[in-house]
Design a protein around this nucleic acid. Structure first.
Length: 452
RNA sequence: GUCCCCAUCGUCUAGUCUGGCCUAGGACGCCGGGUUUUCAUCCCGGUAACAGGGGUUCGAAUCCCCUUGGGGACGCCA
């Protein structure tokens, strides 16, 4: 049987790290097993689902490079299907209409809270036969009494829970929309899902879904509940923990592969390897190497992973991501090669490249004033010398630079420091030979002339 | 409160299934040192963990039990 997995986000907010990680796991699993990934949008919450969120999911997934084989399929387009299955369950006596009003339920909940007990629906309508007309109702699942509900989790082994811990949960809301547990199960059946890989927070929902599978006499997919990602305070990752959406990491200069690499490695491992290419991950990913315990998100390591990938990214891809244009005189290849070497993220590269974007550069006044008259004279001399030498390669640049130093009995610092300021407008930059190499003789001369 | 899951350095993890090769390995961070023309790079070194208690066994980080700790779920949210 060929593998079919799904990624099923709800369009109710921005794409979180945790959610994206399960998307990645599903994606990698489908690739590894030559299966299909279905993108399913769980928009059964009319209040909270938004189109913006839907669009954000699509665009962020695309940006990450996580493509799917089928979908996006919206659950809101499939209401008739859930309705059909709910009716079937009712007709078989496995579900029932409940006419208890919202107020009535709320009262019961308050009472339970007061008594410090957990609320449980008292099955008011479970065995009633009358059907009040003109009254709203929900459909509830008739949870069996005292029955062991069992399923296998490929990471955690056999899990079982007694059904007495499960409420007569709602499967169809009064507006006709299905609830999560119901829609999710029906779709997994209808879409032929073979493996469900999702967050551990769904572990306690699973028995309800198993109940539905069993009631419908359908095969249960193989579940894999992946451990949670926790914040520094070791609670479930949420808005509290600062920048949480993929969008914000994109804005901070993270690469898609860095996000995929770091998130995959958070809860999964392949021996001691830390840095992976996407193709490697598709080849290596297995459920077996997943970790059962929760993982704390660590921005420091994330940054390190990103900087590792930054150093490896091909220049052709890098320039696209930077979305900047450099003046034609500079050697783009060289500029990117030198600068990515010592950068941690895309934004740093963009900053470091500022001196290549315009002919004239703006130098901060204090910085410019820090270059003394004597130094300016040295620079002017150097400019003439350099113009005559017109070196072509880094080696030649080095040679002529040193030759000038010897000729004037100068130390490296005495020339490199002011030259860096004049050429880049900054105290920090790649090595001075590299700067010279990037800019080319013409611009070097130009800039020295401009300021000295 | 009830139910479920989990437990190796501060953090991510290898090792656990298939006990001995583990005086527990790697990585991030941190601390120290080095290279260099600046730095946001690079190189070298160091720091630091099997939660506790009982078993089983010749032998346990690895298997079993208990305790403790942590997380998650208990919605007409997903």
């Amino acid at each position: 049987m060929s593998i079919r997995v799904r990624f099923a986000p709800s369009p109710t907010g921005s794409l979180h790290l945790g959610v994206v990680r399960t998307a990645i796991f599903n994606y990698l699993f489908s690739k590894k097993n030559k299966g299909k990934l279905i993108l399913r949008i769980e928009d059964t919450d009319k209040e909270r689902s938004t189109n913006d969120s839907f669009n954000e999911i699509i665009s962020n997934l695309s940006w990450l490079g996580i493509d799917w084989d089928e979908g996006p399929i919206k659950q809101s387009d499939r209401l008739d299907i859930y309705d059909k299955f709910a009716s079937l369950l009712i007709s078989e006596g496995k579900a029932y209409r409940c006419y208890a009003s919202q107020d009535e339920i709320n009262l019961l909940k308050e009472k339970a809270k007061l008594e410090n007990k957990i609320y449980r629906y008292p099955r008011i309508w479970r065995d009633k036969t009358e059907r009040p007309s003109n009254q709203e109702y929900v459909v509830r699942f008739k949870t069996p009494d005292n029955e062991e509900v069992e399923f296998k989790d490929s990471l955690r082994g056999k899990i079982s829970i007694n059904s007495s811990n499960i409420d007569d949960f709602i499967i169809l809301k009064s507006d006709g929309f299905p609830t999560y547990n119901f829609a999710s199960s029906i779709d997994d059946i209808e879409m032929g899902i073979t493996n469900v890989i999702r967050g551990e927070d769904h572990l306690s929902n699973t028995p309800k879904q198993v109940l539905i599978f069993n009631a419908l006499k359908k095969n249960i997919p193989e579940f894999t509940h992946v451990s949670m990602i926790l914040g520094k305070d070791k609670t479930k990752l949420s808005k509290r923990h600062g920048a949480e959406s993929i969008q914000s990491f994109k804005d901070k200069g993270f690469l898609p592969i860095s996000i995929i690499n770091y998130l995959t490695r958070l809860g999964w491992s392949h021996g001691d390897q830390e840095i992976f290419a996407l193709d490697e991950l598709k080849e290596l990913f297995t459920i077996d190497n997943l970790n059962k315990s929760p993982a704390v998100f660590d921005i420091e390591k994330f940054k390190w992973v990103n900087s590792s990938h930054i150093k490896n990214i091909p220049n052709s891809e890098l320039i696209k991501r930077l979305d900047i244009s450099l003046i034609p005189d500079v050697d783009v290849e060289k500029a990117l090669t030198y600068i990515k070497e010592k950068s941690g993220d895309i934004n740093q590269i963009r900053d470091s490249l500022k001196f290549c974007e315009t002919h004239k550069i703006l130098i901060n006044e204090d910085l410019l004033n820090s270059v003394t008259k004597d130094q300016k004279e040295i620079l002017s001399n150097f400019s003439n010398f350099y113009n005559n030498a017109s070196p072509k390669t880094v080696e030649q640049i080095k040679d002529s630079f040193n030759e000038f130093l010897n000729l004037h009995n100068l130390k490296m610092k005495e020339l490199a420091f002011p030259l860096r300021i004049i050429l880049t407008g900054s105290k920090k930059s790649p090595g001075i030979f590299e700067i010279l190499d990037i800019l080319g003789v013409k611009i070097v001369i130009e800039r020295i002339k401009e300021y000295c």
